[in-house]
């Protein structure tokens, strides 16, 4: 058995670059419509995972996203900001509405909040190797805090894996990526 675990590690070859469109996933958009994740194709975007009732790091994640958003605008490479809910059960349309109010995002039309079924959420997070676990009783969710810059084709261009990570690599990559397009 020990050898089996080691074997699993030894044979693990570097995975191909993560791409969020490798498998299609479907989500509830804020207007209640069904939205395929692939409709995001064609433009780079910033992607993060939160849940609206999160008492721990999520406010920090959202604050970081807002800073990123402002910095992207400041360097003249504004990008769509995509927030995916880690708690489909509790992130009702109303909860998402309150989330926008709480963070003064009511008029931020380039922000989208996606809520999906568990299978969609597991699939998307596995594509990114993003880890989360919900305590079934307290409903608290332990999760990674990675913020991603995704290319127009779905590839991960930059992943800021810790809230303490500098945003500079993401901003530089966004500038480069948007520069290429022009």
């Amino acid at each position: 058995m020990t050898s089996l675990v080691l074997a699993a590690l030894l044979y693990a070859t570097p995975a191909p670059q993560a791409n969020v469109f490798t498998l299609e996933t479907h989500w509830r958009a804020e207007d209640g419509s069904d939205r395929a994740f692939s409709t995001l194709k064609g433009r780079p975007f910033v992607l993060a995972f939160i849940y609206t009732s999160c008492p721990g790091t999520c406010p920090l994640t959202t604050a970081k996203l807002k800073r990123l958003d402002a910095a992207l605008k400041a360097q003249k490479t504004p990008l769509p900001m995509v927030v995916v809910s880690l708690d489909p059960e509790h992130d009702t349309p109303q909860a998402v509405h309150h989330y926008r109010e709480r963070y003064a995002l009511e008029h931020a039309e380039h922000w989208s909040v996606f809520v999906g079924a568990e299978a969609a959420l597991r699939t998307l997070t596995q594509l990114l190797d993003f880890k989360y676990a919900q305590n079934p009783e307290s409903k608290q969710i332990m999760h990674d805090n990675t913020v991603y810059l995704i290319s127009r084709g779905g590839e991960v261009l930059t992943a800021l894996s810790s809230l303490d990570d500098s945003s500079a690599p993401l901003l530089e990559q966004a500038a480069q990526s948007e520069g290429k397009q022009r």
Partner: peptide
Amino acid sequence: TLDFNGTFMTSDNRQDGDRV
């Protein structure tokens, strides 16, 4: 299992600042 990697235990995750 559906959440096989959702247990927040890896062989050594000291490099992942936010992981438990």
